[in-house]
Design a protein around this nucleic acid. Structure first.
Lengths: 198, 198
DNA sequence: GCACTTGATGCGCGCCACGCAAGTTTGTGG
DNA sequence: CCACAAACTTGCGTGGCGCGCATCAAGTGC
């Protein structure tokens, strides 16, 4: 995962991929949620210094390219939870892991707003956040000794957590909100674990 | 919502829409998750007895057409919960509502498998299930007297419930499973409300 | 160095979403 | 009963896009 842990080929690949998704997100933000159709594949490719055909080797749709960074972050949810001390209670560990994962650094409002409140991106955005569920469920199962094949608890909890992250994002973007994302996220996760009014 | 509660125009529109989404889902199932690319817009349209252009007036992608029935079902989640007696405890009401909504009739294995385990449909499928969250959150807020603008609890709970439904579907489709969907769904929802190993 | 693997690019094809402008059906008021 | 207006369907044309295929260039292991 660290750069010097892979060969030149892999590093170049990752670099191009990052360049493309960064360019895609940046251009999308520039046009805003309403002008997404104006962001052409050609624009993304040339902004990333790459041919349109190459762009297409990495992503098979503009939506996927735009949401790729968010998806990559979500993929790290499992490892974030595993990084917590083994003795820590589940809820506490999950909250700490998610707060660390999603608030380092504090998310970019424009980017998150672009992803979360553009209708054409809704499907990809959901995929991006849902991407956390698999790894998270595995990490939860490992931590609690549950059997992922029989117990529904790990997968359901992972889904609840991912859902809480989404809801927290939406609430954080709402006009008039002044709290830090960490605070909102903590509140949302606490709801997910209690499922009772807070 | 009832057929005779709308004029001819509305009924015809709904009929066309249903014809298209049914045709889309049927054709997709026939080709299986691997052959989705073989289902052309032209095929869906002619199977539904409608022109390709008309198909496009109802849906803006094949994926959307295929998942439309699932999406419509999810949209009814709010009303399903509101139909429960007012005094009933939240968890009990939610479980009853979801079981009634999603197991009447028992879901079609081929259809659900098509939707839930076809990579190209992942985004639309997530949208379809997530579509339940908004109405559900409103119904939960109404039932508990929470303020949707300030309290995260309704939205987070709705997201947990929708997630549990998805997880239940995946588990129910898993090879070797013999339980009824109602049973799996009940178990999943109970996990969502407790967030502790069952 | 040299053969081999892997990624980047150009080209071309089939498909698709959608604006536009008829043509056709449905609902309404005289 | 009829004409008119609103709404739906359809055909056509256009701009993009996803992707297979063949080729070229860069990186890798011996």
């Amino acid at each position: 995962m660290n750069d010097d842990a892979m060969d030149l080929r892999a590093r170049n690949k990752r670099a191009t991929r990052d360049a493309i998704s960064n360019a895609a997100l940046r251009l999308a933000i520039e046009q805003g949620p309403s002008g997404l159709a104006l962001v052409r594949v050609q624009d993304i490719a040339s902004a990333a210094g790459v041919s349109p055909r190459t762009y297409n080797n990495y992503f098979s749709s503009r939506e996927e390219a735009i949401c790729a960074l968010q998806a990559d972050q979500s993929r790290r949810a499992g490892q974030a939870l595993r990084a917590r001390p083994a003795g820590e209670p589940l809820e506490q560990a999950v909250v700490a892991a998610m707060v660390e994962l999603y608030t380092d650094p504090e998310p970019d409002r424009a980017g998150l707003r672009m992803i979360m409140s553009t209708p054409e991106l809704e499907g990809e955005a959901l995929k991006a956040f849902t991407m956390a569920e698999g790894p998270l469920a595995e990490a939860i199962a490992a931590r609690t000794g549950a059997d992922p094949a029989r117990d529904l608890f790990p997968a359901v909890t992972a889904a609840s957590v991912a859902g809480a992250v989404r809801v927290a994002g939406r609430h954080w973007l709402a006009p008039g909100n002044t709290d830090s994302f960490a605070a909102v996220l903590t509140r949302a996760l606490s709801c997910a674990f209690r499922a009772t009014p807070s």
